[in-house]
Design a protein around this nucleic acid. Sequence first.
DNA 1: AGCGATGTTCGCCG
DNA 2: TCGGCGAACATCGC
Length: 259
Amino acid sequence: MPELPEVETYRTYLNKTSLDQVVKKVSIRDDRVLEVDPKELKEAVEGKKFHSTQRHGKYVFVDLKGEFLILHFGMSGDLLYFEDLEEEPTHSRVLFSFEKGKYLSYISQRMFGKIYLTPSVEYFLKKKNLGPDALKMTYEDFLEALERRTAYAKTTLMNQDVIAGIGNIYSDEILFQSHIHPKTHINTLTDSQLREVFENIKKVLHYGIEKKGNLGEYSQKCLIPHRDQEDNCPRCGTQIQRLSVSSRHGFFCPNCQKA
DNA sequence: AGCGATGTTCGCCG
DNA sequence: TCGGCGAACATCGC
């Protein structure tokens, strides 16, 4: 279930469970999730350790000293650390077996997730043409990223080339908190609106990380628990509306978020 | 039983 | 050439 807060939660989980242990074996259960040759992946990881991790947008980079293993989770990815092979989850696609006898599964139900290998993080970010990380960017980075952009605000926030890390659900929340209609063109926002969007990106994502991406635990004051046409705006009680933006749907309050 | 899903990519269009 | 849009991708649960 991964946008930036979920991916950051997975990264923390990997850090807590899997660092500094020798990977004895990499078992590829389904090579469709690989964007790297299976043999190359095994050679790169077997006998090595996960030394540290970093995240950019929705990608996790695992430092193998010399190269980086990259985990991306698509729409249905997850990680599970476990002790007994019988506990291996249903949609485990790649299994890392540690020397200690424990395991880490890379799970991908719908196969939209991908595993890569790269010599350098910078090289990979450039190749993917990713914008600045939503949490690490400064206000100047943000303004620079928006230059020459004219698409809808929601589309722009979700565009990983512009800013990396925001997806469908969090873009709705950010625009709700900023009182901006999802179909407002990004280049028509005032300076104070831009400032507000920037602040809300940080607030909403930090809050998401605090909740470990657990959408069920979000405050009722957020739009997220009300992303439903049958529901009402937590601020003004107006019925929430659904709309389609760049072939995916979003929710907004027609009263609080005027066009 | 069909639709839709928290993502990315690619081809088409202006 | 660049930016934007929307379909396509693979699978499963509601």
